[in-house]
Amino acid sequence: MTRFLDFWWGGLLTGAIAVAYPLVTGSMLGVSGVYDRLLKRLRYGGELADDARQRALLAETLAAFGPRAAAEAPEAPLAPAPAPCDPAARLFFLPGIVLGAALGALVWGRGEAWSLGAAFVARFGSELWRGAGALFAAGVLIGLGARMGGGCTSGHGISGVALGQRGSLVGTAVFWSTAVGIARLLDAVGR
């Protein structure tokens, strides 16, 4: 019989990382955002050092609004905390997703870390190139959707919904209902 970790463990662990990630990095959890920052870091070759960044920000703010605006601005009620170990956290985060999933599959799943299940094979066949192509195309669509929607399933679905953000609530409702509808449609067409 197939063994799976109880579903509520997934909820607890996901909730734990959603709380821990902002505490460690100073930014909200969002997988597409982490990829985005990583790619930008690779493209632009790093960011300004923190001191230089703050000086540059002050100069830009004064240039744009003048000294009175900055002096009279009220304190933000929920200002983001500085990121104490942001780069290292992101460095571990992305491979951690893959390793964690593989570990979970090996320990609590069927031990088939590379299988997406019978339904996937039935639809796309057992050839590697077809499965990989389908996943790549799905990844591109997800990336486009996440870009257009300002976040992905984790950013909107976990962090945004937990914060009660209206945009995230609407976005999550839209992409979940769309996913269910498309899955049902494919299932009906494939019969």
Partner: peptide, 16 residues
């Protein structure tokens, strides 16, 4: 969720 804001450590500048 704007990625710009984590670079701010000065609340007053952020609020402007």
């Amino acid at each position: 969720t704007c990625p710009l804001f984590p670079v701010f450590t000065n609340d007053k500048l952020l609020n402007v």
